[in-house]
Computed example of a mutant assay.
Amino acid sequence: MNIGVLSGKGGTGKTTVSTNLAYILKAAYIDSDVEEPNGFIFLKPEIISSEEVKIAYPVIDDEKCTNCGKCAEACQFNALVKTKKDIILFQKLCHGCEACGVACPVGAISFEDRKIGLIEVGMSGDIKCMRGILDIGEPLAVPVIKGLLKRIDSNGVNVIDCSPGTSCNVVNTLQYVDMAILVTEPSEFGLHDLKLAVGLVRKFNIPFGIVINKESSDKNIIRDYCEKENIQIFGSIPYEREIAEIYSNGNMLVDNEKYRNIFKGIAKSAKAVIEWN
């Protein structure tokens, strides 16, 4: 059972919800926000393994190359450019699809691997924790995300901390998700981006519910929207200074009994949405 925790925008409390929910459910925590994976700050796992993520890039044999340009024509990402003298490779634009090698009529292209990130596995008490880390300066997050999600145990319960927004990073993660929890905040920006996230999970036909973070009143634009759209609210987290202090110190909200009960309620609501095994 894979539970995806996502948000239309950054800063809504997605990682707060996913880490504390994983703790309550005794589920594995998977941080697929590979450009800024910060869930380990709170769960503090002991790292037990680390594996490099690599993608292939073309190497052109100048002695064989006839500069016909067919490789550049085949590249959908403009990583190869034909000039008057030779073929230029923009390595970080290459997605490793190897279409250029298929297109080359003289067999002038071979492939080598380069590192773009890491996958780390650790344990926080009884909770298994995994995260992908995209190398600084690398533009391609999806290969790291795919490499991470292929390693999760599909027989267990996994809480997947998704990337913010609705980009291809999130789309690729949702292919592994059985249900979704959308974290939002009661603001105009929060509502705008929540609508995008709702549209995305509905396209995937994924059952979902909402968690409202930083809520100061039970009458707000998020609740009005959810009522209008018939969307279930799993729970809300109050807008309180104490929460900000706990979070800023890198601690878990569930260590506080008052906030633990909030996440127990969220977990209970989430279980009721789908057949829980």
Rank of each mutant, 00 (worst) to 15 (best):
residue 36 E to P: 01
residue 61 D to Y: 00
residue 23 Y to I: 00
residue 100 C to L: 02
residue 87 I to V: 13
residue 252 M to Q: 11
residue 180 A to N: 07
residue 49 S to I: 11
residue 139 P to W: 12
residue 252 M to C: 02
residue 40 F to T: 14
residue 38 N to I: 07
residue 32 S to D: 08
residue 31 D to Y: 10
residue 64 K to F: 06
residue 260 R to G: 13
residue 131 R to V: 08
residue 97 C to N: 13
residue 65 C to F: 05
residue 52 E to L: 09
residue 116 I to E: 12
residue 163 S to F: 12
residue 28 A to G: 07
residue 273 V to K: 14
residue 266 I to K: 08
residue 224 D to F: 06
residue 218 D to A: 01
residue 127 I to M: 11
residue 200 L to W: 01
residue 181 I to S: 15
residue 263 F to M: 09
residue 53 V to L: 09
residue 21 L to P: 04
residue 102 V to G: 10
residue 88 I to Y: 01
residue 188 E to M: 11
residue 234 F to Q: 04
residue 215 E to G: 02
residue 61 D to A: 06
residue 243 I to D: 05
residue 76 Q to H: 11
residue 252 M to R: 09
residue 191 L to G: 10
residue 154 S to E: 12
residue 42 F to Y: 06
residue 190 G to F: 01
residue 246 I to W: 02
residue 101 G to Y: 10
residue 33 D to M: 03
residue 206 I to C: 02
residue 104 C to R: 05
residue 113 D to T: 02
residue 107 G to H: 08
residue 167 S to F: 02
residue 127 I to L: 06
residue 176 Y to I: 01
residue 71 C to D: 04
residue 71 C to R: 03
residue 265 G to S: 08
residue 66 T to N: 10
residue 188 E to P: 05
residue 243 I to T: 07
residue 161 D to Y: 02
residue 227 E to P: 07
residue 229 E to R: 11
residue 249 N to D: 15
residue 134 L to N: 03
residue 169 N to G: 04
residue 44 K to H: 11
residue 187 S to V: 02
residue 163 S to E: 14
residue 185 E to V: 12
residue 122 G to W: 03
residue 181 I to N: 15
residue 65 C to S: 08
residue 233 I to Q: 00
residue 179 M to V: 08
residue 147 G to A: 07
residue 34 V to C: 10
